[in-house]
Structures are given as C-alpha cells and as structure tokens.
Design a protein around this nucleic acid. Structure first.
Length: 211
DNA sequence: CGGGTTTGACCGGCGC
DNA sequence: GCGCCGGTCAAACCCG
C-alpha cells in the first residue's frame, strides 16, 4: 500500500497565534517527543488524510475542521497539535488493536459485541510521557497488562457527554520510548482547547476580511 | 462534593 | 468445550 509507505506530509498548519499554547509551542507533555517513521501497516483501506487544498487561503472552514464534521478533518485527527506535534504516522482503518502475539499494535478486529467497526487512527510518538495532551479531555476507564509487554495498556474515553470516542495508550514492546495512541471514533464536538485558542483569531480574521 | 483514577471482576471472542 | 486474552464495568479510592 503505497500511501502508507511513508507518512503523509503534515498538512498546512494553522496560522501562528500569540498566547497560544498549541500553535506556537507544543504542549509540555510533547516537548520531549520527536518525529517518528511509520510503525505499522494496518492494510486497511486508506483514507485520505490531506486537508482541503484551499487551506492555504483564508476561506478555510475552520468550524468544520475543528468539529470533525463533513468537510473538516478526517476522523479525529487532533488538530490542536498539528503544528509542532510529533505525531507523524497516522493509521486509518480498523487497525490498532493489540495483537496477542506481542504487545505491539497491529490490525485485528476484535470488537467485543461485533458492532460495526469504527474508524481507528493510531499515532506513534517518541515521548517520556504516556499521556499526550491532544486538546481533548479524557477519562481513564481501564488498564490492562498486555501479554509480552512490560507496559500496560490504558483505556480512555472522551469526557464530552455526547462523544463516544475512545483511545488506547500503550508503549511499544520493542521500543519502550515510543508511545502508541490509538483513537477510535470521531469526536462530535470541537476541540475545546483549540476553540478557546482560535476564537479571538477568528474574530480578528473576520474583522480584517472586511477591508 | 464532583470529577478523575485505580483495580479486580466480568464478559465475549478466538484458538486449540 | 475450555482456557486465554483483550476490552469494559463499576465500586472504591483519591484529589482539588
């Protein structure tokens, strides 16, 4: 699958914003992270992860982008971290469930109730911190020891009332400096932190666009 | 007191 | 059918 041979180039990023913890600098938890090459091949149908081609101009549909609605970012890519984020490898499709043969993340569909599979995207991040601030709020609901892996896997749910997005966080068995974060589902609400950050910018852009 | 974490129990899929 | 294992639940606990 050629499209997964190499990480897609990071999409055009949001314009720099003063006083923004995310657009000028990575969140503290990401400062020690570094870029990584692709980790796994989910062999799942590739989903385009490119931003709309118009994203370099000012007519960006920011709301769509931020809310994950049609026309916005695909799936649940954590937009807040696009600029300086170390998250380089995105694995669309149904992959991301740990293979039983080791502690690494590989494609395997083992939904408990055989529900229709939900979109999954996995990121690998070299970081000393397990928890990466992606702009959303998460509640931990479980932790399990993974076979053949020293590090446990943690399970998180988005705390937004109507949002059913989950994520799994686990360190690679083969390289414990790498954290694999697997997102499952699509946020049906904007990233709170990013909206907070962008609101003044949007207002300023609207004001300037009148001239 | 509310929200988040921890942790053991439980459930269901899968391989043998 | 049985046991293993991943994923989830929920009560207890912690913390600001």
């Amino acid at each position: 699958m050629d499209s997964l041979d190499r990480p897609p180039p990071l999409p055009p990023v949001l314009p720099p914003l003063p006083n923004s913890p995310y657009l000028f600098a990575s969140p503290p938890s990401l400062l020690s992270s570094s870029l990584l090459p692709p980790l796994i091949d989910t062999s799942a149908p590739a989903q385009a992860l490119a931003l709309p081609s118009s994203s370099s101009s000012l007519d960006i549909d920011w709301i769509s982008l931020l809310s994950g609605q049609p026309g916005g970012l695909p799936e649940n890519v954590p937009m807040a971290l696009m600029e300086n984020a170390p998250m380089t490898t995105i694995y669309p499709g149904n992959g991301g469930v740990a293979d039983r043969s080791d502690g690494d993340i590989k494609k395997k569909v083992t939904n408990r109730t055989r529900k229709p599979t939900r979109p999954r995207i996995a990121f690998q991040t070299r970081s000393v911190d397990d928890i990466l601030d992606d702009g959303f709020r998460w509640r931990k609901y479980g932790q399990k020891a993974v076979k053949n892996s020293v590090h446990p896997r943690s399970y998180y749910r988005c705390t937004h009332h109507t949002c059913n997005v989950k994520k799994q966080v686990q360190r690679l068995a083969k390289d414990t400096s790498i954290v694999v974060t697997t997102y499952e589902g699509i946020h049906n609400h904007p990233c709170e932190k990013l909206m907070e950050t962008l609101t003044p910018l949007l207002k300023q852009m609207q004001f300037l666009s009148r001239f």
